[in-house]
Amino acid sequence: MPGASLWIIPPKDSSFSQALQTLISTTIPPHFPDTKTHDFIPHVTITSNIDQSLFGTDPQAWLSSLHLPSGDQHDPVFVTLDVLEAGDAFVKKLTLRAGKTAQLLQLASACRAEAVEGGDQGKAEKWAHDYYLPHLSLM
C-alpha cells in the first residue's frame, strides 16, 4: 500500500484504548515468538494510498480542511468490532473485523473521495461498499 493512511483512533486515555495497547504491545507478541511484531497505536484505517503531495509539510492543515460528513470533526465515530481473524498479510496478521456501519462507511467514502479519488464521491462510495474492509489490527 504506497502512500499515507488516514486512521481513527480511540481516545488515548480511555480504558478501551489502554486495553488494546496492552494487547498489541505486551500480551499478544509472546504468543508468536517466531513472528516479528511491531508496536503501534490502536486504530482503524479509514483509507490508504494517500499521496503525500496532498498534505505536504502541514498534514494538520490538510486534515482540518477535509469535508467530513458530520458538522464537527470531533464528533465520535462509533465502531463495532465483530470477529477475531488471523491472516497472512503483514497488516492483517491478527485483526478484529469492524462492522461496516452507515456512519463508518459515510466517513470512509467522504475521506476517500477527497484523499484518493480526486473528489469523485461515486467512486469513493463504490470503494467503501465493495472493497473497504475496516478492521483493528492487533499484530
Rank of each mutant, 00 (worst) to 15 (best):
M139R: 08
L138K: 07
Q21C: 12
W7S: 06
S65R: 04
E114P: 00
V116T: 10
F16Y: 12
D51Q: 08
P76F: 11
V116D: 08
H67A: 15
P11D: 11
T47M: 12
A98I: 03
T45N: 00
S25R: 13
I24Q: 01
K92I: 03
D82C: 10
P76H: 08
V77A: 05
D75N: 11
T80K: 04
A4V: 05
G118C: 02
T101V: 02
G118V: 00
P30D: 14
H38T: 12
T57L: 11
S17F: 12
I41C: 08
Q121R: 11
A113I: 05
S53N: 14
L104S: 09
P134F: 13
S64Y: 01
D130R: 15
L20K: 02
M139G: 07
T45I: 04
L107E: 12
N49S: 14
T80R: 13
V91S: 13
I9E: 13
V116W: 12
H135A: 06
K12Q: 12
P76R: 08
G118R: 04
D82H: 05
S70I: 06
G71N: 14
G118E: 02
W127H: 05
S65E: 07
D88G: 14
L6W: 08
V44N: 04
R97S: 12
I46N: 08
A115R: 07
H43V: 05
S14A: 12
T57C: 07
E125Y: 00
G122N: 12
A128V: 03
Q21N: 09
E125S: 01
T37S: 14
D88K: 13
Q21Y: 10
E85M: 03
A4I: 03
A89T: 06
A4R: 07
A89E: 10
D39N: 14
F40T: 07
D82F: 05
V83I: 06
Q106F: 00
A89M: 10
Q106I: 00
D34N: 15
T27Q: 14
Y132A: 08
S64A: 09
F78K: 03
P29V: 11
P59S: 12
A113S: 09
S5Y: 05
F55T: 04
G56W: 01
R97E: 06
L96C: 11
P33K: 15
D120E: 02
P30A: 11
T47K: 08
D34R: 13
D72A: 09
V83M: 07
E114H: 01
T37E: 02
Q103P: 09
A102T: 05
G118M: 02
D82W: 03
D120K: 01
H74Y: 13
D58Q: 02
H31Q: 14
F16I: 11
A86Y: 05
T27P: 04
G99D: 06
I50S: 01
F16L: 09
T101Y: 00
R112W: 06
Y131M: 15
H67T: 15
L138F: 15
V83K: 09
A110M: 02
V77D: 05
F40G: 07
S17M: 06
L138W: 13
L66M: 05
I8E: 07
T37W: 12
G119N: 01
T26K: 13
M139K: 03
D72Q: 08
D51S: 13
S17I: 03
D58G: 03
T80N: 09
S65D: 09
T101P: 00
T57Q: 10
L105C: 11
V91D: 09
Y132G: 04
D34H: 15
G99Y: 04
Y131F: 13
A98T: 07
G56Q: 06
Q103G: 15
W62H: 10
